[in-house]
Write a protein that binds this DNA or RNA. Structure first.
Length: 473
RNA sequence: GCCGCUAUCGUCUAGAGGCCUAGGACACAGCCCUCUCAAGGCUGGAACACGGGUUCGAAUCCCGUUAGCGGUACCA
């Protein structure tokens, strides 16, 4: 029993869309789960719209998500010869025929039928030119397309996510498999490639369901058994419409820029349209793989909820060690123009990550702690100072004085906490009336990690300097 | 129009005839914890699209309606 072979086959006509990313993820999960092989194939037969830049972006997106492929990337455009040969075989067996109808004739015929309110179906018997005209065009070497003669029978398959799906051949056109310029049309190219690459499981978007009966027919005519199909539903925007640019971020790269962690993105995407069968939400990669089955993929489209993604990201932010967060945070800091030569910023990451939902937020808070000039008084900070009046400055002065007495060697959270609590008690201040002004002096805002930790992480020198700016005002 | 797919809280979902006065999560509201916030804990509001069957019994099976989506190309 050979192991499964799956493929992810994006066309390089745009960025890696979250829908595509999830399809890739499901392919990857299935391959990992079954010990199978994942093939990456770039479907670049649409020369007009395909670009190398897009191909690179797709590869980068997958790499960022941690979706590794075992074979490829292969480029569909390189298989033109085989596509042609398969078309020839179909022609030879009588499963396909040459179509000399010109595009104009086709359009005219289509309009004629549509106008009567009927449905246009391309049928050899109805469309074929009179024998003499056909012969004339053949002799003249006129350009022609090759059409597949759709059999008039039921075409059904057992879809891994939808169950039995059945079509009637009579509802399908005799479709073109080879253009008049000799290049293959999608349906032939995919089938030809999937056969050649010995793909056993085709896991792809729902929008391909209507192509599947044509492809199944092609497999049969070519003498091959169709693979297992698993059609995964679309991802929708919050308005219930197919996710598009109007919904904001739709490319995987956008989420990287937004400060989402690959692990969180993977987890979130996996749960969009698939469920492990119970209430688990945060699933480690290994468990995701161990519990993945095609049958548990839902048949119903899902709405992409950015809020929940950010919650998920927050979960990972809390869970992951500062070590693992260091690279993306450093990248973000660099982008912000913040450098800290020789400084270990991991303690700063640990101090702020629990209160952040994105890497961007982590980096911002780290930057403020690193560099006093980045402290900006926010609305709540301003409001607090206004509310406290003179007590604002006097509290800071008190803290400043007491903290000045703490030696650099003793500058740690537990020690600072003792000093601060002591000050509050001596001055008969509520703890909050001492802590909050200090917090505002150090960060500009009223929200942060516990004040002693904050002071420890900012460091003695910088903390005292920041407090000094406000003491007594 | 025709063909196909889908239908549980606002959203992601559990549910594969009795365990369901439908469970969890996000979001929302309240409370607790607390120097603030986040996290965490507790509490609350919130759903089986509709109509027929089948069955002792239906969110679960069947049919229809409605709605949404996809396709209907010498695009992928």
């Amino acid at each position: 029993m050979s192991s499964p072979r799956v493929r992810f086959a994006p066309s390089p006509t745009g960025f890696l869309h979250v829908g595509g990313a999830r399809t890739a993820l499901f392919n990857w999960l299935y391959a990992r789960r079954t010990g199978g092989t994942m093939v990456l194939r770039i479907e670049d037969t649409d020369r007009e719209r395909s670009t190398d830049a897009h191909t690179q972006v797709i590869l980068d997106g997958m790499t960022w998500l941690g979706l590794t492929w075992d074979e490829g990337p292969f480029f569909q455009g390189e298989n033109a010869e085989r596509h042609g040969a398969d078309a020839e075989q179909l022609l030879a067996s009588g499963a396909a025929y040459r179509d000399y109808t010109t595009p104009e004739e086709l359009t005219a015929a289509r309009e004629r039928v549509t106008r009567t309110g009927a449905t246009f179906r391309y049928r050899r018997a109805e469309m074929e030119l009179p024998a003499d005209e056909q012969a004339r065009r053949e002799e003249a070497g006129r350009p022609h397309a090759i059409r597949f003669a759709i059999p008039d029978e039921e075409i059904a398959w057992e879809d891994a996510v939808h169950g039995t799906i059945s079509w009637q051949g009579r509802d399908l056109d005799d479709f073109i498999i080879l253009r008049s310029d000799g290049s293959a049309i999608y349906n032939l190219a995919v089938v030809s490639d999937d056969i050649a690459m010995e793909i056993t499981h085709v896991i792809r978007g729902d929008d391909h369901i209507s192509n599947t009966p044509k492809q199944v027919a092609l497999y049969r005519a070519l003498g091959h058994t169709p693979p297992v199909f698993a059609h995964v539903p679309m991802i929708l925007g919050t308005d219930g419409k197919k996710l598009s640019k109007r919904h904001g971020a739709t490319a995987v790269g956008d989420y990287q820029d937004l400060g989402i962690l690959p692990a969180a993105m993977r987890n979130f995407l996996a749960l969009l349209g698939w469920s492990p069968g119970n209430d688990d939400e945060v699933l480690p990669e290994a468990e995701m793989i161990a519990r993945f089955t095609l049958e548990a993929i839902h048949a119903k489209p899902a709405v992409f909820d950015t809020t929940k993604l950010e919650w998920m990201n927050g979960q990972y932010l809390s869970m992951l060690a500062a070590d693992e967060l260091l690279p993306p945070v450093e990248r973000e800091l660099l982008r912000m123009g913040v450098t800290a030569p020789g400084r270990d910023i991991r303690p700063l990451i640990d101090a702020v990550k629990a209160r952040s939902r994105t890497i961007g937020q982590v980096a911002e808070q780290v930057a403020v702690r690193l560099d006093g000039t980045r402290v900006v008084r926010d609305d709540k900070g301003v409001a607090l100072e206004r509310k406290m009046g003179e007590r604002f400055g006097s509290s800071i002065a008190l803290a400043h004085a007491a903290l000045s007495g703490v030696a650099d060697a003793d500058w740690n959270a537990p020690r600072i906490e003792i000093v601060l609590r002591d000050v509050a008690e001596q001055a008969a201040l509520k703890l909050g009336d001492l802590m909050q002004p200090v917090r505002v002096a150090l960060t500009g805002g009223t929200v942060s990690e516990p004040v002693p930790e904050l002071l420890a992480v900012v460091g003695r020198e910088s903390s005292l300097a920041r407090l000094g700016l406000h003491a007594g005002h």
